[in-house]
Design a protein around this nucleic acid. Structure first.
Length: 274
DNA sequence: AACGCGCCCTGTCCGC
DNA sequence: TGCGGACAGGGCGCGT
């Protein structure tokens, strides 16, 4: 669920909150959110006493940087949340999996109803290797129309599916893939390699625009997403196509359709998207 | 080797 | 009111 704008919102929240604070203790209540090779005992041993240096993002991952070269990478899956305990909303959390106690008496909580999320403990070096498996950052200067056109030109898979592959472009999920394709006028089932250079340029601009607007609105909450204060995002009312099957297209009035592509819904306007 | 598919898990909603 | 099925923002491992 949480895609790039939601991860970025959490990162910006946490960056104002945790750097300079230290981990005094740690409690794991659902060990299945820990990545391969990680267990509650080891996580506690490695993180206890360490202090937060910075908070970053790579694709959909929230990346917590500690001193002593330690990195905790958090992939939120579908229902993962990172919420600070002093927020009144923290009382609403029903599925806390990991609690990081901070030296100010509060805590950083990882909550995840479906437990599809994963926490990975890295060094700077191993995180760099992991990060290298991810594709272009859509909001970085390297994400140009030419780069997108070239990358997509190498794949025959449907463009909606292609956009969800984190190894090509990192951070785009089903909501923003659908929104960007609508804005660009590209049908979600089109093969990635049949986009013209002009269409690739429109898709690039649409992705950058929708991700930027969604960050400004603090993300999309369909049901589960919350920021680090436990508050919902404000972008859902501004979704133009996602989840709007049967409603009129906001551009031409034609009825919005839904198709299932590899087990996931795609929404499109049959007149605007070819 | 690039794809599609099934699965991981809980919650909600809808039709009967 | 209860029950079964569909569906949900993600990503991994497997088979072809």
């Amino acid at each position: 669920m949480p895609e790039l704008p939601e991860a970025e919102t959490i990162v910006r929240d946490l960056r104002r909150r945790v750097p300079g604070h230290c981990v005094t203790g740690l409690k794991v209540t659902h060990a299945d959110v820990l990545g391969p090779g990680l267990n509650p005992r080891r996580l506690a041993r490695e993180l206890k006493g360490l202090c937060f240096r910075d908070v970053g993002r790579r694709g959909k991952n929230v990346v917590l940087h500690f001193d002593r070269d330690r990195v905790l990478a958090v992939n939120l899956g579908m229902t993962g949340r990172l919420v600070v305990s002093e927020s009144p909303r923290a009382a609403e959390l029903r599925h806390v999996a990991v609690r990081l106690d901070l030296d100010d008496g509060h805590a950083l909580l990882y909550d995840d109803t479906r437990r599809f999320g994963r926490l990975e403990l890295h060094t700077t070096a191993t995180w760099a290797e992991r990060s290298a498996e991810l594709g272009l950052e859509p909001l970085a200067p390297e994400f140009t129309a030419a780069a997108l056109h070239k990358l997509a030109g190498a794949s025959r898979t449907r463009i909606r599916n292609w956009l969800l592959d984190q190894r090509r472009v990192a951070g785009v999920g089903n909501i923003y893939a659908n929104e960007a394709l609508f804005r660009a006028g590209v049908h979600p089932a089109r093969p990635a390699n049949c986009m013209s250079a002009r269409e690739a340029a429109k898709l690039r601009d649409a992705l950058v625009a929708v991700l930027t607007e969604a960050i400004a609105a603090r993300g999309t909450t369909l049901s589960d997403y919350r920021d680090a204060a436990g508050e919902a995002g404000g972008f859902e009312p501004r979704l133009q196509i996602y989840g709007r099957e049967g409603e009129p297209c906001p551009v031409c009035g034609q009825t919005i359709q839904r198709v299932v592509l590899t087990n996931r819904s795609a929404f499109f306007c049959p007149r605007c998207q070819r």
